[in-house]
Design a protein around this nucleic acid. Structure first.
Lengths: 349, 349
DNA sequence: GTTAGCACTCCAACACTTCGAGTGCTAAGA
DNA sequence: TCTTAGCACTCGAAGTGTTGGAGTGCTAAC
């Protein structure tokens, strides 16, 4: 166990290093803060902290920087609550007080604002569409043989997909098909669409519905959409990475930016630690995703009516301002949860 | 006017520089190619070309690099057709032979493939929705007072927006409203939605339709969507910029990547030269958009049934392989035009 | 008009030095 | 036993000098 003084020194080193991105020396430390201990004492403590694995030394005659273990300890025990500057609070308040109807736009805005406030990169997993229920299915014929199939969920989410229909299908037949699909499928969670499709609907409809294959094709297309994209992925402030001194080397950032550019829902989900409702932090090598192993990721879960539906992650260098990011993310996650819960329950406008 | 030999030398310098990114010297040039002239002669010619403004010399004892004027001359007069390597052709063929129903996905794929083939950044303006016509309007009530308004165009494009309705509106009233809107507005080009809205529809409906304000609100919301986003913007291979030697310096790329990240339809349109149906090239300072002034942009227009609807632009360093990019873009623009024209006319499947 | 030869230029790379921030260790003091 | 002043030592960053090579421009001969 670390002594009180060791903790204080470790915290000071982390915070100094986060701020100036340069190894922290004993003299700087004793002056910079109002520490009542001499540099020599600090040196002794630093040597001990290094032996314990909390600090690294880039080279003999340099100051110390926090090791991964050091950051971890800091995050777990030392990054106690502190005030975030008032401007930040104001910006966040403003964001969530705007009346934006679409959940999608709220999330988009949130992504942007977090990036601006933190100067890091934000990665947000949109609400998982799986859990939403079918509200309405619609089929709009375009020209011979093609039509747009539209799916609306109870959360107001709209998906659409082009499908092919038999050339000779009449608009009456289309209408009957749509009515039948709606009556059978309304209220079905999207996750179950495919199973319902074959279990109930298909068997029942096979005999009664003309153009049965068309109906199946339509549903199959719609199910495919949600399989492939359980939700949207939002990326904000990717270019912010370029402002970080540790990423001044193009070869260091490139893998990261390439990864961000390619990221789909599944890769993004893999990158953001999900377990639990608390804030999660992955530091450096703790990340499983290769291009993130020089970064840290702080992530939070947001929910609708208490049910977790998506994640917000902030990606920055390991030398990240954990305290600030954690605080902001904590605030945003709960504010976002409230706002979209309210929107979707059709609350007071 | 340049002599034949000067043109040959200029072309050789551009091509060498494009390939190796290093100033080209007289000796290299005379050996590298099968030139039958001595380095000394080449030196003389190079000095002349420099006087004429076609070449620059980074410093006295360095080779020459093309100036902006040099590239311009090359693009206008020397980059005559050449074969692109067979692999590229194969990749492009494959791309356009895949049967992707949605235009959106075809374009998305195109963007990605161009970036991969060129190793530059691709910026595509999706089809301008303005010109499309209203095919269907739908209103799906969600919960008290909210509903999703859905708009389908003849091109199969779907837009949706959440709207507020009077709390006490009945589903019958909604159905009547939707019917009326459809009968009045079907076939209207989106560009005219707003004018139609007030000129014809509003005056006529004011008396006959209950919940008239709701109807107007719905249309207004839908019109807003298309005002703000005349089409989608696709960006591909932004991270490719980081592989270019001229952008190894983080401070050089950052403005560019930031611009790409923020780019909406209007800024993107401003960046891509549109005039004419031919390939357009903007070199370095010819670009009006500030962050692109160290880049070159090659852009082409694609069309539906002969009507230009969008643009494809490739963004790279001024030291760009113009010949290759132009060739690829030429091919892609016409292939894309064909494919989406065919899709939308509901042709043979 | 072309080309060989030559003196000249200038960058890139390397070695060398200096400077300063920082350390670890020792011995004295509380 | 813990703290601290003092000191020798280390090492990188930054500056300076040197060298080598690629490239030029010019001149004179072909």
């Amino acid at each position: 166990m670390l002594t009180q003084r060791q903790k204080m020194i470790l915290a000071a080193i982390v915070e100094d290093y986060v701020r100036y991105a340069e190894p922290v020396g004993s003299r700087t430390l004793s002056k910079h803060r109002g520490f009542q201990i001499s540099p020599a004492t600090i040196r002794n403590e630093m040597a001990d902290l290094e032996d314990l694995g909390y600090l690294d030394q880039p080279h003999t005659s340099a100051g110390r920087i926090p090791s991964q273990k050091g950051y971890r300890f800091y995050v777990d025990h030392l990054a106690t609550d502190s005030e975030v500057d008032p401007e930040t609070i104001v910006a966040l308040r403003a964001l969530f007080q705007e009346q934006m109807s679409e959940v999608e736009r709220v999330i988009q805005q949130t992504t942007t604002v977090i990036s601006q406030l933190t100067q890091y990169t934000t990665l947000v997993l949109g609400p998982k569409i799986h859990q939403e229920k079918i509200k309405h299915i619609q089929l709009i014929p375009l020209s011979h043989g093609t039509a747009v199939a539209i799916l609306v969920t109870d959360a107001g989410h709209v998906e659409n997909r082009q499908v092919h229909l038999s050339e000779d299908i009449s608009s009456d037949a289309v209408a009957r098909m749509v009515n039948l699909l709606n009556s059978k499928l309304q209220g079905t969670p999207l996750a179950n669409l495919r199973s319902h499709l074959y279990r109930e609907v298909a068997t029942e409809m096979a005999n009664t519905l003309e153009y049965f294959e068309d109906a199946i094709a339509v549903l199959d297309e719609l199910a495919t959409v949600t399989d492939r994209n359980p939700g949207k992925v939002y990326v904000g402030g990717a270019a912010n990475m370029l402002t970080q001194p540790e990423f001044r080397d193009v070869d260091k950032v490139r893998p990261l930016l390439e990864w961000l550019e390619q990221a789909d829902w599944y890769t993004a989900e893999h990158a953001l630690p999900v377990a639990g409702s608390k804030l999660q932090v992955r530091i450096g090598q703790e990340n499983e995703v290769e291009p993130l192993r020089d970064c840290s990721v702080v992530s939070a879960t947001y929910s609708i009516g208490g049910v977790p539906v998506g994640n917000i992650g902030v990606i920055g260098p390991t030398r990240m301002n954990y305290r600030r990011v954690m605080h902001i993310l904590d605030y945003v996650a709960s504010a976002l949860s409230n706002v979209i819960t309210e929107r979707l329950s059709g609350g007071s406008w």
